[in-house]
């Protein structure tokens, strides 16, 4: 019965080989590339930074991490925490409507998910990769645009969220982008990733 033994061995070896292949990582759906359209995020007729009037943001573009997203409005949740965008496949960023609009004097606050549960990556999946000097453009409802330059990116424990640094008054137009980050604890992330940026150019 030697042929039978060989067959059994061959089947076993094939099974082990298949298991080894199957144990690999599954393909990630969205390896975010570099700016798909850097030109669209540029401000050809950019003027030196000046304080803009109030106009809500409708689009946010971050070429360095391939973000080009519509912007929704967010308010307060019943527990007085800030609302976050819904967990959907077409994840988008949200602007906290009790903060200044981008380009106004003060800290304009925008939020987005890092991951959206079963839908995979969130719109701010790679926010932590931003570096000092990267450009962020907020396009406003009235047709103007405000370009910001990243000053710093901080990862902080949610337990020590820097409320004053994020929401506190500043005497110039600034931008805050917030998402989650750090290691996961159950279904939640331990940290927040916060991008601090200042206004560098505007279009009228």
């Amino acid at each position: 019965m030697r042929p039978l033994s060989r067959r059994v061995f061959a089947v076993g070896a094939a099974a082990a080989l298949l298991a080894g292949c199957g144990g690999g990582h599954r393909a990630r759906p969205s390896a975010t590339g570099r700016p798909r359209d850097a030109a669209s995020a540029a401000l050809p007729s950019a003027a030196p930074a000046r304080v803009l009037g109030r106009s809500v943001p409708v689009r946010l573009q971050i070429p360095a991490i391939g973000v080009d997203t519509p912007v929704m409005r967010l308010g307060l949740a019943p527990d007085r925490s800030v609302e976050v965008p819904p967990l959907t496949a077409d994840d988008r960023a949200g602007w906290y409507r009790h903060s200044p609009t981008p380009g106004q004097r003060g800290p304009s606050v925008l939020l987005g998910h890092v991951t959206v549960g079963v839908h995979g990556d969130g719109v701010f999946r790679h926010l932590v990769r931003l570096r000092r000097g990267d450009r962020i453009t907020a396009r406003l409802e009235n047709g103007t645009a405000a370009a910001f330059t990243v000053g710093s990116v901080r990862t902080v424990a949610k337990a020590d969220f820097p409320t004053e640094a994020v929401y506190g008054d500043v005497d110039r137009p600034e931008l805050r982008l917030i998402t989650c980050g750090g290691p996961r604890e159950g279904d939640e992330y331990r940290d927040n990733v916060i991008v601090f940026a200042t206004l560098s150019a505007t279009t009228s």
Partner: peptide, 14 residues
């Protein structure tokens, strides 16, 4: 209006 607490901007991909 300053919100309380930290934003929950990440649902783990279960």
């Amino acid at each position: 209006v300053v919100p309380s607490g930290a934003p929950d901007t990440g649902a783990a991909p279960a």
